[in-house]
Nucleic acid binder design. Structure first.
Lengths: 213, 213
DNA sequence: ACGATACGAGACGGCACCGTATCGTTAATC
DNA sequence: GATTAACGATACGGTGCCGTCTCGTATCGT
């Protein structure tokens, strides 16, 4: 997998079984979903649970980090791309997608483990970030840019798109990580987006603006 | 510590050294700050680093979890309570406090470790949540309630105070956990609060409201 | 058929940590 | 000064994982 010996050259002998790769990766995902942390994952136990020889695992991956790298690559990128109706509806769909994704045990387990290793394993984090976060974020960015272009959002929003994205996605992601119990609310995405838009639309006439007491 | 044998009864023999408690807890905090995760912390190494006998540690705490419980209790509750000037300024100070706290390595390490064990160690999470999160949250809640009472914020905000708090604190906490690189901006708290207030103030006249395309 | 390679199973030595016990020493109370 | 308990140090047996290696078997190219 990570180190296929011959490229596409006529390889001799018995070929590697693709079923083994799947079995190992599926087992890791299952264990993570069941609450095992990265640290508690052992090559030994993974091999045992997958019904696979330990040497077979080491033949494919030199160690746990390399295996985890492939596990992250295996969680498929989301199709997403709401790109449909009104800005409001698309934003709601986008936030709702985040909410649902982080409610799923597997995604949640991956996220929490990756957050712990954000600093200690930059390579792992990089892979996770680009697989799981960047696509969603790009979708959201395009939505906001379109909103600005069509005059539905204040022009200043385009100047710091990162902040705008965090203003609308931050609340749900905060709950996803710190208060998962408050994530059940089905109307959450809608209420967040409406609130966000209230401060994001062009001001008609008298702008309230920062008022000092 | 967790299990002082005699209450205040005239204890015989050599008394336990308070310096040992501090040395052990300080060592744990140091190791965590240096990047060691909860899982990688071993009683053996903690004792060694603290210059303390292993049995001495076990005399105070039955295991790692009990020790960590006391470590969490040792991070002092913040005085905070801005309670000063305008609503806007108090909100900014409150958000800015969150930003600074999560920029500190020790707080950051604790937060990340706790997030991973949110589900697996509810007792630990409980302690951390009440020590580190609840006080800040209560301050923020009082601020918003006061804002509503004085007519600076829309009355509906009082109906779901949790959501309001997450709307204003979510963005910075999102960055604290997932995008620490975007947390350096000194004007961040101010911009978030102003944006938040723009959607949180009472609407004068024509309310934009949800607009469908 | 035959050589090459992957397979599951598991033995191997080594290592870090677990939690307990045993030293001689130290600092309290009686 | 005798008793009592905590101290640092260190040894103890036990456990789980590491990464390598060797079996006998299965599956491919030639």
């Amino acid at each position: 997998m990570t180190q296929t010996p011959g490229p596409t050259a006529a390889r001799r002998g018995r070929p590697r079984s693709a079923a083994v790769d799947r079995a190992v990766i599926d087992t890791v995902l299952r264990l993570l979903t069941e609450g095992t942390s990265f640290a508690d994952l052992s090559m030994e136990n993974v091999a045992r649970q997958a019904g696979v020889g330990k040497a077979t695992v080491y033949r494919r991956w030199p160690g746990k980090d390399a295996l985890l790298l492939d596990v992250l690559a295996a969680v498929e990128a989301p199709p997403a791309e709401p790109a449909g109706h009104s800005l409001r509806e698309d934003l709601i769909a986008s936030i709702e997608a985040i909410r649902h994704r982080t409610l799923a045990k597997q995604e949640n387990a991956l996220l929490r483990n990756m957050l712990l290793h954000l600093h200690s394993s930059p390579e792992l984090w990089q892979r996770y970030y680009e697989t799981a976060i960047v696509p969603r974020r790009r979708t959201l960015a395009r939505l906001l840019e379109r909103g600005v272009a069509e005059g539905e959002l204040r022009p200043e929003i385009a100047e710091d798109l990162e902040l705008a994205m965090d203003m609308v996605a931050g609340p749900v992601l905060y709950r996803a990580t710190i208060r998962p119990d408050l994530l059940q609310d089905d109307t959450l995405a809608e209420r967040i987006v409406d609130w966000f838009l209230q401060g994001a639309r062009p001001q008609d006439g008298k702008t309230p603006g920062p008022r000092y007491a």
